[in-house]
Simulated scan of single mutants.
Amino acid sequence: MMDVLVVDDDFHVAEINAAYVAKTSGFRVVGTAHTALQAMQMLDNRHVDLLLLDHYLPDRSGLELVRGLRQRGIRCDVIMVTAAQDVDIVEAALRYGVLHYLVKPFTFDGLRARLESYAELRRTLRDASGGSWRGQQQIDRIFGTVRTPADAPAPPAKGWARPTEDLICHVINQAQVPLSAQEVAARAGISRSTAHRYLRHLQDNGSLQLSLRYGDAGRPEHRYAPAPQRGQDR
């Protein structure tokens, strides 16, 4: 069970957010705060896994609170839930290690997706610390868990077609070795630019894995192969 502190200056909004958290399996609300000072006092006196934090607080901003936590060595993960959409604020949130940034107003499903991805992150980190570390593959999985379904890569917009994607996957799966974009294009009977666009999309969504082959000179050649199935050794 993960302990959550809800911080919002609006009492009604804090109650709603707390109710959303309580409805999500694996999470419990251990308190609500309406100022940065109240939140800091609660964090000083009890363990909190996750801070559900608004940016606009009456005494100091949410990100100022996060900066104070980091300076004091308080280890608490943060999901921002705020109406603030300024690029500078979003950039600062990234720099302070905020895991998710959810813009108000949002639905229960929107918050639940972020909470569930956070729970998956914690499970993945726990598994890794238990001795199942697998290098880059494990690191990629850890970073991938902070993405939600809404963050999944979109298909290529211009001229995208499912049959072409299926054809490229078939070509890659039938090959005995990783293929370059040029080789995929030749075998599929499509242009190299089209092959490259689809290959990048398939790599982004985890269907393919990228490797580099270095020649005597020039840039390394990108080569693509089917991504290993989860739990399958390389």
Rank of each mutant, 00 (worst) to 15 (best):
D3I: 14
D9L: 06
E15S: 03
N17P: 02
N17C: 05
Y20C: 02
V21Y: 02
K23C: 03
F27L: 08
R28W: 01
R28K: 02
V29E: 01
G31D: 02
T32M: 10
H34T: 00
A36I: 05
L37F: 00
L37N: 01
M40T: 04
L43H: 01
L43V: 05
L51G: 01
L57V: 03
S61W: 00
E64T: 08
L65F: 00
V66G: 02
R67S: 07
L69H: 01
I74P: 05
C76K: 11
M80N: 07
T82W: 02
A84K: 12
D86M: 13
D88A: 15
D88G: 12
I89H: 06
A92D: 12
A92R: 14
R95G: 10
Y96E: 15
G97S: 15
G97R: 15
L102F: 15
V103G: 01
T107D: 06
E116K: 06
S117V: 12
S117D: 09
A119P: 00
E120N: 09
E120D: 12
E120T: 04
R122L: 06
T124H: 11
L125F: 05
A128F: 13
S129P: 02
G131D: 04
W133E: 08
W133P: 04
I139H: 10
F143R: 14
G144V: 05
R147Q: 10
R147S: 14
T148A: 12
T148V: 13
K158P: 00
K158Q: 08
W160E: 01
W160D: 03
P163S: 13
T164R: 14
L167D: 02
I168P: 00
I168D: 02
V171Q: 08
N173E: 15
A175M: 12
Q182M: 15
E183Q: 15
V184G: 04
R187V: 05
A188W: 14
S191F: 14
S193M: 14
T194A: 15
T194S: 15
H196V: 09
L199I: 11
H201A: 12
G206A: 09
Q209S: 05
L210F: 03
L212T: 08
L212V: 08
G215P: 05
D216A: 08
R219V: 10
E221S: 10
Y224C: 03
A227C: 13
Q229W: 10
R234A: 09
